[in-house]
């Protein structure tokens, strides 16, 4: 097997907030000292993406998938571990602040109404990155902008317009054109179609598939929408509470999920044709990432949980060809079998 393009190695990200001076004073007075609050956004995630592959990252909101995407794009520096693209780190940081990040990973954000500078003509928005990095000779910039806009299905004459003159779907096309203009090795799509109408979603997804065929794109496709992910991804990583719980080729995962969380996630998707039969939401709430439960992060909501799940964090282990699961059921049992 060839060397993977993107390597995410044992990456964790914690966000700490030191209590403000007033809170610390108040804590001192009341005798309950305010402690540093730490959010465990991503914990010990290891993933690889091969050149030309589209990897889906799926999970409920708050599971750390966007934070993972931002670390891959170099916007956040990992607290631990490292992210490399073709062997090179995606960002250099000093004291947790990113100082230099790679132009070879480009990100497409969820909300196209926030991701374009409202006071910059869209042509300039597309052109400024390549111009800054000297990717395109200045004389060829207008032609490049027109070509990119055509590639994402927009008329080149629209280059002189401001973002507010476009619809959401058109804006997302502009955001894609801006990302492609940098000729990135990897795209990170963070819920890139989540805020669009369903019909527009389909158009943008088709555009993505088309571009993937034409350009051989490699991408990290972050989404909470299982049907969208199935449509566009080769492999899917399921995240829960900052941890990777299952990794499998898309079709196999959809055919036979192995982790109880993945199974519950699929069962909770409402489907047309299932009629009025109830769909099953997952029991309970997602625990707070401020205070993750000991043991398996999913055990408080898991129907199969045993004693071992409450104390021991399951490691991600192989579960069939190309598949991996972090669950004691797959790897030595939950401890409940003995009791029963």
């Amino acid at each position: 097997m060839t060397e993977p393009l993107l390597k995410i190695e044992a990456v964790s990200k914690r966000f700490s907030r030191r209590p403000a001076l007033a809170e610390r004073l108040a804590g001192r007075i009341t005798g309950r000292p305010a402690r540093d609050e730490t959010v465990h956004a991503v914990t010990d995630v290891t993933l690889e993406v091969a050149r030309g592959e589209v990897l889906g990252v799926v999970g409920e909101s708050g599971c750390g998938k966007s934070t993972l995407g931002r670390m891959v794009a170099g916007i956040h520096a990992p607290s631990e571990g490292r992210v490399t693209l073709a062997g090179q780190p995606v960002a250099r940081d000093r004291g947790g602040h990113v100082t230099k990040l790679t132009p070879n990973v480009q990100m497409i954000h969820q909300d196209p109404f926030a991701s374009l500078n409202p006071r910059m003509k869209v042509g300039e928005t597309i052109a400024e990155g390549p111009r800054q990095h000297g990717l395109t000779p200045p004389a060829e910039i207008p032609a490049m902008v027109r070509a990119l806009m055509a590639q994402v299905g927009l008329e080149g004459a629209y280059a002189n317009r401001l973002p507010h003159q476009f619809s959401g779907g058109q804006r997302q096309r502009i955001a894609i054109a801006r990302a492609l203009a940098m000729r990135p090795d990897l795209l990170v799509l963070d819920e890139a179609v989540a805020s669009l109408d369903v019909s527009i979603q389909a158009q943008v997804l088709n555009l993505f598939l088309q571009l993937r065929r034409d350009l051989g794109l490699t991408a990290l496709f972050i989404s909470h929408d299982l049907s969208v992910v199935r449509h566009v991804c080769d492999r899917v990583a399921i995240m829960y509470l900052g941890r990777l719980v299952e990794l499998a080729p898309a079709e196999e995962l959809y055919a036979a999920p192995k982790h109880p969380y993945t199974a519950a996630l699929f069962a909770s998707v409402p489907e047309i044709g299932r009629g009025r039969r109830a769909f099953h939401p997952i029991e309970g709430e997602i625990p707070s990432p401020l205070d993750p439960p000991p043991g398996c992060p999913f055990h408080p909501r898991c129907p199969m949980a045993g004693p071992r799940c409450r104390t021991e964090v399951p490691a991600l282990g192989p579960a069939g060809p190309g598949r991996a699961v972090a669950c004691h059921l797959e790897h030595g049992g939950t401890g409940a079998e003995v009791a029963a």
């Binding site: 990040l101 132009p103 480009q106 500078n117 800054q132 955001a175």
Partner: peptide, 25 residues
Amino acid sequence: KDYIEAARSTPLPTHRVLLRHLLPN
């Protein structure tokens, strides 16, 4: 807002993000 993050992650130099993206808004 995301457009500032997008400009930073392109990456564009800080002065450009400040003067061309943040200031006009």
